[in-house]
Design a protein around this nucleic acid. Structure first.
Lengths: 185, 185, 185, 185
DNA sequence: CATGAATGAGCGTTCATTCAT
DNA sequence: TATGAATGAACGCTCATTCAT
């Protein structure tokens, strides 16, 4: 008996994400995903019950992963300014290093049939636990978590999605500075 | 002067947008759009060369329209704080009053095959012209237009997309206050 | 606008029935039916909602038709012996002249997912009305309708299905004689 | 002596027959049969060369078995009337006790691609040998074997397949009486 | 012997688009 | 202009069968 190959499962997910970056969530048919992954269409159904199961599983997984990427770059000992910078920079770097995942998650999050599979709020709870500590110590201004998420993640993603040409570093530094001014007391 | 034909074209666009809110950009086939609009599939091709032409035309049109909605709520005489409030509130109110258009534009903007039909930057040039005047007079802090757009539009849309349950008004007022503090000198 | 072509609908049904005679109800895929009928697979779905709808509609239609064929060969004025002969002969002739329909209906009638679309009892009510008159006049022995159908239709179909080689006429005449002896007083 | 393997082979056949009763001959895929039997799809191919081989082997086997069931209920010493009753009753009881086998065999017998694997005539040769003796002694009327099979087996199966609701016993007794009158001198 | 993984081909159905009226 | 009919290609998925363990 052949054993289940989790690398193959991974390859399928990555192929789908790559394809969706190129052709949009519309253009990613099971047949195309299979060809991109170098497997038979039927093989996909060994690892996922349906196309929607594949999409939602990957959406969920990558949603968490992108926040964990940021999580790994922050530590309790950081200064508040440093923390904000790490979060925003981490967010941005992730979009550059995982362009296809970023595009995929953004598309899924807007799609009414997929968005409810993942709660954006839950994904960043690790980061928020730390921020809450800073807020408790008066190192970061208090505000609702939703607005905190709104200003910490949305603008940098906007930047990542809409930046075209020219050096992005200054833009990013400016944004960091703005958010520091906004959130530091 | 609106001819009967213009109205039919409008009906098609609105039907598509309604459908995409319900079923996502994947679920909107030409046949379904036609049924929703109460016309024949062939009729759609009288007004648009292809499905992509329909999508991109609507995307472009509604993108501008959503900024014009905000535009109509601001005037040169406003105070800077008032201006920021009007923009953010206008943005939010639009998402509530045109839920389906908001969802549609958000989906299109993330889709690689559609996003390049519209430059988000161009759409808001009217608003930015005014802001530039305020900045020139030192009433609003200077920063790059991209970051300005990033903080003015992205967080409020994040709020609109991710808010679930509970009163939204306090959230929105808090966000306005945050952005006023951020952008006022 | 092209108008609906009922000849085409007929062609589809006939193609399916022909195919099922050759390859069995298993072997009749929509694509094969379409090829046999000389239309596109999609065209079938203009006239029928689904493959099952096509099957059940044809099953129902041909079930009635095969009894109507017999119906046309009987008249109130016939003698009782003559009536029985007409029914059995009619049944048999139909299976010869419409071999593919006979095979199709027999297969559908045995398939659990299709059989309940058609009540065999209802199909032959016209014939039974006449027989009831004969029974009322004591020209045909009384028995339950179910058993009447069982002896009038099942054996002749058995003959039609299982006869191989040799002249069938004597067999058929013998069967007619047997049933006359059975049913005449 | 039944080896463990023989039992597994049996399980596969029974699973298939059960499935075909529920979903028709169309709905019985190898994967479903395997699941129903609690084995792997590959295991089926250890015992049978192909799906068709499985179908035809089971068809042949169960065809004979259903006649053997009747065979066991008749003995040379019986009266002619008793013999006819035993055959018809035996036939009917079998359909009740082996509903799934009955449905399976009936479906196979009508399917052009399967029917030729089994000659219905051959299956009942044991019963016919006995009847021939009765006929030789003038205890049962002479007629061709095909018509004999037609009246002995087809009506009772028709009854079994088309009876719905109400007590079946009287129907069956009536049929037995009819066939006795038909076949006894 | 027995398995679950793997597959190319095919399934029923819908797609975006064009045709004929 | 506007239509429903028509279509080849593609859809998501399952098929019968084989492979590797």
């Amino acid at each position: 008996m052949r054993t289940r190959d989790y690398e193959k499962q991974q390859r399928i997910k990555e192929a789908m994400v790559r394809l969706i970056l190129r052709e949009g969530i519309n253009g990613a048919s099971v047949a195309k995903i299979a060809r991109e992954a170098g497997v038979s269409p039927a093989t996909i159904y060994i690892y996922y019950d349906s196309k929607e199961a594949l999409l939602s599983a990957a959406f969920r997984e990558y949603s968490y992963q992108s926040y964990q990427y940021v999580d790994r770059r922050i530590r309790p000992g950081m200064g508040a300014a440093e923390l904000i910078e790490a979060i925003v920079q981490g967010c941005y770097t992730y979009t550059v290093e995982h362009e296809e995942v970023f595009s995929f998650v953004e598309q899924c999050a807007r799609c009414p049939t997929l968005s409810e599979y993942v709660s954006q709020q839950e994904c960043c709870c690790g980061i928020f636990d730390l921020i809450h500590q800073y807020q408790a110590h008066g190192l970061i201004r208090r505000c609702s978590d939703l607005n905190l998420a709104a200003v910490l993640f949305a603008p940098v993603r906007f930047l990542a999605a809409n930046h075209k040409g020219g050096p992005v570093e200054p833009q990013l530094r400016e944004l960091v500075a703005m958010l520091q001014r906004l959130l530091l007391p």
